[in-house]
Simulated assay, not measured.
Amino acid sequence: MTTVIDGNEIGDQITEGVAECTETLVNEGVTPGLATVLMSDDGASETYVSMKQQACAEIGIEGYHYELDADEPAETLFATIDDLNADPAVHGILVQMPVPDHVDKREVLERIDPMKDVDGFHPENVGRLVSGNARYKPCTPHGVQKILAKTGIETEGKDAVVVGRSDIVGKPMANLLIQYGSGGNATATVCHSRTDDLAAKTRDADIVIAAAGVPEMIDGSMLTEGTTVIDVGINRVDADTEKGYELVGDVDFESAKAKADAITPVPGGVGPLTIAMLMYNTVKAASLQSGVDVTLP
């Protein structure tokens, strides 16, 4: 019997624990603050930011939101980041990607104070992650770790294949899987668009984490019986629905479910954990900056 992992339930459990930590901080006079910055007309980005701000309101984090015209010069965005870096009420800063073409994405990431980089993408935080001393784990890979742990799926000694090599998911996911300790100690293989015979790699895996951004690229024929399948992809494909599209993952769910021991759906799998772990990182940032200790879930 295949287990369909309920990401909403796991996300709610983590969010409840984060809310308790938020209350502890507030009682000590520290209200965690998260600033989101949007410099885009992209509808999906606007939705993502709205969801993050809503999550803040639900657990007691102070949300600050800044919208910049996509035609503004890069210096306007950098000045906004500088102001937020200097604001003691703001413990976490998130610049919603993508930014316009005339803005250097790497310069944006490097401009954020690494202590306030709750995405975990500043080079300093990436280096700490790789060295095994993470300050903030990137939200989606950390969420995948939580899913595996809460579902009782052991990573130690397992062969894990990560499909996708992005800075946001693929690379940090592989790094987390090979770390010493709980949620790590796996043998990780990173596959990508240049990988020869991807199916041979995924069939050898105990755990497959799909994060390539290609709709339904992995199906049941590419899996071995009993595999754990974590689908990070969220893709819009044309469909005969009221909206004219539907959301699908990087995994063909039905055929993969027939082979998998456990699998995450799309939507309702990894997505809820991404926001939960952003709240987690924001509260951790407030704790580190204030010196008030909390025990995060």
Rank of each mutant, 00 (worst) to 15 (best):
I112G: 11
P73M: 06
E107T: 09
D101W: 06
L129S: 02
D69E: 12
N133W: 01
A55K: 03
V95G: 15
A74T: 07
P73K: 03
V108N: 10
Q96P: 08
M51G: 00
P100R: 15
S131R: 12
H65Y: 02
T76R: 15
H65W: 02
I93H: 05
H91L: 10
D101P: 01
E58F: 00
S131T: 11
K116E: 05
E67A: 15
P88H: 03
K105V: 13
E107F: 05
E110S: 13
K116Q: 08
D69L: 12
A57R: 03
D82P: 00
L77K: 03
A55C: 00
P88L: 06
A57L: 03
M97Y: 10
Q96V: 12
P98D: 11
D83Q: 14
E75F: 04
G127R: 05
S50I: 00
G120T: 08
I59G: 00
E124N: 08
A70F: 04
G92D: 04
D87R: 06
R111D: 06
P114N: 10
H102N: 13
G63I: 01
A70H: 04
I112H: 07
D82A: 14
I59T: 01
N85H: 05
D87V: 08
I93L: 11
D82F: 03
L84V: 02
G92C: 08
V130R: 07
A89C: 02
A74S: 14
V108K: 11
Q96D: 10
I59V: 09
N85R: 05
A55T: 01
I81C: 10
L77H: 03
R128G: 06
P114D: 08
A86H: 03
I61S: 01
S131D: 12
V126E: 11
R128H: 09
E58P: 00
R106I: 07
D83T: 09
E110D: 09
L109P: 01
I61A: 02
V118R: 11
